[in-house]
Every structure is written in structure tokens, then in C-alpha cells.
Design a protein around this nucleic acid. Structure first.
Lengths: 111, 111
DNA sequence: ATACAACACCTTGTCATGCGAGGTCTGTTG
DNA sequence: CAACAGACCTCGCATGACAAGGTGTTGTAT
């Protein structure tokens, strides 16, 4: 039923790694950036994002550290590790293979 | 971890509907066709396919009926319903939107 | 002063679904 | 006759998106 929700499955990590490969970001910012860069398509929920970030950190793909703003507020900035960068490269390849394969089926291609 | 497996989630139904839009097929054939048309990429397992077919039939998107071969063997051929055809069209559009959005993030686009 | 939205983080539980592993029966081939 | 391929099936596990709930702060209307 919820097609879009299921589509996202398996892509969250790659999207997050991709985003963080451009620069370190904190959670809330990631949500807004994903939304902006996808022209409004991706609207990540916090219940999706934060567990995903923790998962990635636990796997050693990103590292986060708290930064205290002048206002005493704190944010947790995440940046890619070397392992994260390597996995990202693999996942980009994987995504290309996958989307190519889907397009072979979805479009009434000649073949 | 299992990236490819998760990628498939949410796409199974659209792939099946797409396949069946070209012609009615039975389960085993679908597995082989998907494999062939995707140049070996999609290797559906029976534990994925049969539940999916039952799901789709229950939702009225496909209908299956048994056909008896001369050899007394039976196969269950599935074909798209009108509702299935409509949903397929929606899902193709959805897939295009999704993959476009992913590519916006995954590729270090200018924008 | 007092709401109320936005920022910024978090967790718990529910639901969907891919698929590994198991099963059945038939037909064909060595 | 054994062994494999065709053809169907189900059960249970693991994964992951996210709704719904929570905390505390800052900024902006009323």
C-alpha cells in the first residue's frame, strides 16, 4: 500500500552517507538538506533519521560529536569515516545496478 | 547490511505488475523472466514471489487461474486486472520520481 | 507576560516484507 | 530407481520506516 515508504527502504543509509560526503551535518539539518536537494521529495521523519544515524555510527561509517553553540545549545555533527566513504562508493554502484535493472523491467524495452 | 535485499523492498509489486502487463505468466516463469529481462540481476526467491502474488491477488490487482497441461501438471497463470493496470501506471510514475530524487542526492549535482 | 511554533535531540512499538528453510507432488533423464 | 528440475506452497526471522510519544531551548507573535 504505502509504496513510497517501502521504496525508501534500503536507500536511507546511502542517502545519508551521500549527504555527509559533502560536509558534516547535524540531524535536523540533514532533514532540511535532503528535502531541499531533492526539491521537496524526501521528507525524512525523525523516527527514521535518528535511529539511522545511530546505526551508521555504531557501524563505524560516520562519527558524531557534540558542538556547543555560543547560545549554549548543543548539536551533534556527523561526519563520514573512511569506511563510510568506501561503503558509499559501493552503494552508489549498487544503486546504479539496481535502478538499471528496474528500468529494464519497468520500461517496455526492446532488448 | 543486506543492501540489495532492502533495495528490493517496495519494488517487488511494481516489478511483478510490470511483467504481467506484457502477458499472463505463472510463478515459476515469472522468476525466470525477471532474471532474464534484468540480465541476471533479479533472482527472486520463491519465498518472496508466491506470497507477493497472493498479496496482489487478494488486493484485486491480478487474478490467477489454474491451467491443466496435457501432462496433467497444473500451473497457475496470473494476469493483470484493470485495477492492477491503473496501479502500475501510478507506480511507474512514483518510481521515476523516486529515482530522480535519489539521483539528485547521490550525484554531486550542481543545481 | 504568554502562548506557540521552530529548533534539536531522543525512544518505543507497530507493520510490512524479503527470504531462508522447510515441505509436497509430478515429470524427465541418466 | 535415483536424482534433478519444474511447479506450487508456508512458517518464522530480521530489518527498517515512521507514528506517536517524550524532553528542553529559542524565537516570535499576541
Amino acid at each position: 500500500m504505502n509504496y513510497k515508504r517501502e521504496l525508501l527502504k534500503g536507500n536511507t543509509d546511502a542517502l545519508l552517507l551521500s549527504l555527509l560526503s559533502s560536509q558534516p551535518m547535524y540531524g535536523y539539518q540533514i532533514i532540511k538538506e535532503l528535502r531541499k536537494r531533492s526539491h521537496g521529495y524526501f521528507k525524512f521523519r525523525e523516527g527514521t533519521l535518528y535511529p539511522a544515524l545511530h546505526r551508521l555510527e555504531k557501524s563505524g561509517l560516520i562519527v558524531g560529536n557534540w558542538e556547543r553553540l555560543p547560545s549554549e545549545k548543543e548539536r551533534r555533527y556527523y561526519k563520514l569515516t573512511e569506511a563510510g566513504r568506501r561503503l558509499l562508493e559501493e552503494q552508489v554502484v549498487e544503486w546504479q545496478g539496481f535502478s538499471t535493472a528496474v528500468n529494464l523491467i519497468m520500461q517496455p524495452a526492446s532488448s
